[in-house]
Structure formats: structure tokens, C-alpha cells
Amino acid sequence: MIDHSGLSVADFDKSKAFYEQALAPLGASFLVQIPPEYTGGVKVGGFGQDRAVFWLNQGEPHRPSVHFAFTATTHAQVDAFYAAAMAAGGTDNGGPGLRPHYSEHYYAAFVRDPDGNNIEAVCRVPQ
């Protein structure tokens, strides 16, 4: 249903570095930066695996903060996402583990990004 989405971030370079590290264990990387002549001088760039689906643009951060959940294919990917996001300067918002109150096989970890958004990696596959 959703083709792509993104966030406004206070410090584009800081957030780009955070997401490059946090999303790497999920197989995602920074794929494209839009030339400033197309953005009115605002930094805009996208992350994904084969195409950009998660975008950052420099601007006023969202208030209240928002939540994004990224797909992981294994519990180990969730664990690696959490470790990478924390090492990149994220703030713990719920370490890796099963969340049976969501569903029987919902294994996830939650981290706050540099702007306070709730970023999650989730695996729904039994392991």
C-alpha cells in the first residue's frame, strides 16, 4: 500500500550517518541524494535495497515524533539493527525480543533516532 515515505530531520548529515549504520544490517543503504537545484537547496536523500523507499529531508523535525518499522528477515537481523543503531547514537526504546502482545512471532527492537523518532526493526518469522 505504501510505496515510499520519509522524515524531516534537523541535521541531515547526522541523520544520514545514523541511518546508514542502523539500516545496514537490514540490507539497506543510502542510494541517492537529490541535487540541490531540484530541492530548493534542501538536502534530500533516500535509502533502500534496490530503490529508495525511505527518505530524509533537512527541515523541521516532526512533532510529535513518528514511528517507522523496518522489515527484518531473521531475529539476528533485528539484534544487529539494534546494536548498530545504538552504536550510531540511538537511544534505547525497547531492546530485541518477542512481543507476544502484538502477535505470537513478533520479534522486534525499538530505538529513538537523533530527532526522537521511534525506529523499529521487526521479524515476523518464527525462529
Results as ranks from 00 to 15, higher is better:
67 H>T: 13
90 G>E: 06
52 A>M: 04
92 D>N: 14
69 A>T: 15
84 A>L: 09
78 V>F: 10
99 R>F: 03
67 H>K: 12
52 A>Y: 01
59 G>P: 06
84 A>K: 05
86 M>T: 11
92 D>Q: 07
85 A>V: 06
63 R>V: 00
91 T>E: 15
58 Q>V: 00
83 A>G: 04
90 G>V: 03
68 F>P: 01
53 V>R: 05
53 V>M: 06
93 N>P: 07
98 L>P: 02
91 T>I: 15
72 A>M: 11
75 H>D: 12
53 V>P: 00
81 F>R: 02
50 D>A: 15
96 P>E: 02
87 A>F: 06
95 G>C: 07
52 A>F: 03
77 Q>P: 02
95 G>L: 10
102 Y>P: 00
88 A>G: 09
87 A>Q: 14
55 W>H: 02
95 G>P: 11
76 A>Q: 13
77 Q>N: 03
50 D>T: 15
80 A>H: 01
78 V>K: 06
53 V>Y: 00
87 A>W: 06
100 P>Y: 15
97 G>P: 11
72 A>Q: 08
89 G>Y: 10
52 A>D: 04
75 H>S: 05
91 T>D: 09
99 R>W: 04
78 V>A: 06
75 H>K: 15
97 G>D: 12
81 F>E: 03
55 W>V: 02
85 A>Q: 06
88 A>H: 04
100 P>S: 15
63 R>C: 00
98 L>R: 13
65 S>T: 08
95 G>V: 04
51 R>C: 10
53 V>L: 05
85 A>R: 04
100 P>G: 14
82 Y>P: 09
89 G>W: 08
58 Q>A: 14
71 T>K: 15
72 A>P: 12
53 V>D: 02
51 R>W: 05
54 F>R: 02
90 G>H: 05
57 N>K: 12
100 P>L: 13
55 W>M: 01
62 H>A: 04
74 T>P: 10
